[in-house]
């Protein structure tokens, strides 16, 4: 069986596989990298969305021979150790995940979008085709806008440390309490609110610019 080498989340990996084994199963079944999910296998649901040389791609319809010598980044490679990518941080703050199964793909798609477009419009976000069967779309949208604001506030290197494995009430000050209107319209105000959360966390010593 041929052997293929590529960079996976910053490390060189080798995989023995038939040339047409899809990257999804090479990752999941041969390399034990399970962040990219199977939701359809035919490039429709986008649950497997990852990055190839920095661009989004769908491992389920890409053969392993086609990534040889290239750089593959999955959701596992997005954070810098414990330092989350601002998009992941925004996902926590907006409490996006329900079952969570689509979210690695949603996040990788959002990161790719923000690479292309610093300040995405609603129409740009509408173009994301990732299926969320739990219907979290509005929170996905809010989180993307919040991440865009975060990244604009501290360009290029913005990364936020999340101090706890359990994201809970740190953001309490900015979260609406019971009885308040919970989910605001997506406007600049939300983005500002999110930026304020990062700042508040920073003041508590649990967040810092990387």
């Amino acid at each position: 069986m041929p052997k293929y080498s590529f960079m996976l989340n910053g490390k060189k990996v080798d995989v023995d596989a038939p040339s047409d084994l899809s990257v999804l199963w090479a990752l999941r079944d041969k390399l034990g990298v399970t962040g990219p999910k199977y939701g359809c296998g035919i490039n429709v649901c986008k649950a497997c969305t990852s990055h190839l040389d920095g661009q989004e791609f769908n491992p389920c319809v890409t053969n392993v021979e086609d990534v040889a010598g290239r750089k593959v980044t999955t959701i596992e490679g997005l954070a810098d150790g414990d330092v989350l990518h601002p998009v992941q941080q925004a996902w926590l703050e907006q409490d996006v995940a329900q079952c969570g199964f689509c979210q690695p793909g949603q996040i990788m798609a959002a990161v790719a979008l923000l690479k292309r477009t610093k300040n995405p419009t609603d129409a740009d976000i509408d173009a994301i085709e990732n299926v969320c069967r739990c219907g979290t779309y509005f929170r996905v949208r809010t989180a993307i806008k919040s991440a865009a604001a975060k990244m604009a506030a501290s360009p290029a290197t913005t990364k936020v440390v999340s101090g706890s494995a359990v994201p809970v009430t740190t953001a309490g000050a900015s979260l609406p309490t019971t009885g308040a209107t919970a989910t605001a319209a997506v406007t600049g105000a939300v983005a500002l609110g999110a930026a304020a959360v990062v700042k508040a966390m920073g003041e508590q010593g649990s967040a810092e610019p990387a």
């Binding site: 999910k37 996902w91 926590l92 703050e93 409490d95 995940a97 809970v168 309490t177």
Partner: peptide
């Protein structure tokens, strides 16, 4: 009675969560 974020969210957004 007060809004709390999901306890399993971090594992989900880092790909560490195991289905």
């Amino acid at each position: 009675g007060r809004p709390q974020n999901r306890v399993d969210a971090r594992a989900m957004v880092t790909g560490a969560f195991k289905y």
